[in-house]
């Protein structure tokens, strides 16, 4: 479904802009990936004994797949609130540059900071990618309404996926339950691999996968943090060395 041209009078209504944002949910293959991921999160929550309402609330409040998986799997494996919070906050640092990069696209000279709170909450990797793709085709003064429409649409799809995944994990034979749980690592690995832009990203992904099983043998409670910060720093070092050699 193509968006109307920028000068079209349709854009004068912010309700219409919201509706276009909502409809854009159906225009991206990433919606399918999100659906699969949140199906997996619903199943994961069921198998780690969280309630359905709890996982739905986590989707509304947290709205970041990796953070939700870290939260559920760390609490489920007996981590304390502080250990889980540290792992979640480190995984969420990546949201900071995303928000910093996306919000200027929506700002006008008259925009108030509080108008940007809801769009900022919706920003996660999918919305980040889609904003760069779609916002240039939306008039600047309608971009907040459009983004909120896109965000509410994606959240709704994911809430439905949570309910379906939770229900399937409770009722399906073990084989299919396992297949739904496998969706999470598969979808995350591949969508992260697709977002790798620089050598540092690829090294961080590969080394992060390889280092965790080694660090996990130490049973520190913050294994993910240790393997992540080490692998990420080494990856940054590789990037720095390579650039210095080029210069």
């Amino acid at each position: 479904m193509p968006l109307p041209p920028l000068e079209s009078p349709i854009w004068q209504s912010s309700v219409r802009a919201y509706a276009f944002g909502l409809r854009a949910v159906g225009s991206t293959v990433l919606t399918l990936v999100l659906f699969a991921t949140y199906l997996g999160i619903g199943a994961l929550a069921h198998d780690t004994h969280f309630s359905l309402g709890w996982v739905l609330t986590s989707t509304l409040l947290v709205w970041a797949g990796p953070a939700q998986i870290i939260l559920i799997s760390s609490l489920g494996s007996g981590a304390t609130v502080v250990q889980a919070a540290i792992a979640v906050t480190v995984s969420a640092i990546r949201l900071f540059p995303m928000v910093v990069a996306v919000l200027p696209m929506m700002r006008t000279p008259t925009t108030r900071l509080r108008q940007l709170v809801l769009p900022a909450h919706f920003i996660a990797v999918t919305l980040w990618v889609e904003c760069f793709r779609l916002l240039p085709h939306v008039p600047r003064e309608n971009r907040i309404a459009f983004t909120v429409g896109l965000g509410t649409g994606l959240v709704s799809v994911c809430l439905i996926a949570n309910i379906v995944g939770y229900g399937l994990a409770a009722n399906l034979p073990q084989l299919f339950g396992a297949a739904i749980l496998l969706l999470t690592p598969l979808a995350f690995l591949l969508s992260t691999a697709r977002n790798c832009r620089e050598l540092a990203d690829i090294v961080a992904l590969g080394l992060g996968l390889a280092l965790f099983p080694l660090v996990a043998t130490l049973h520190t409670g913050v294994d993910i943090l240790i393997s992540g910060v080490s692998a990420g720093t080494i990856a940054y070092g590789v990037h720095w060395l390579r650039r210095r050699r080029r210069a």
Partner: peptide
Amino acid sequence: IWVRAVATAILAGVIAQILVLPPGALAS
């Protein structure tokens, strides 16, 4: 760039955790 590398590596760790120490039905 460093922040993004660490965030990517943490996500990789989460993926590895689900595969190495699988939850629920995946453990079968």
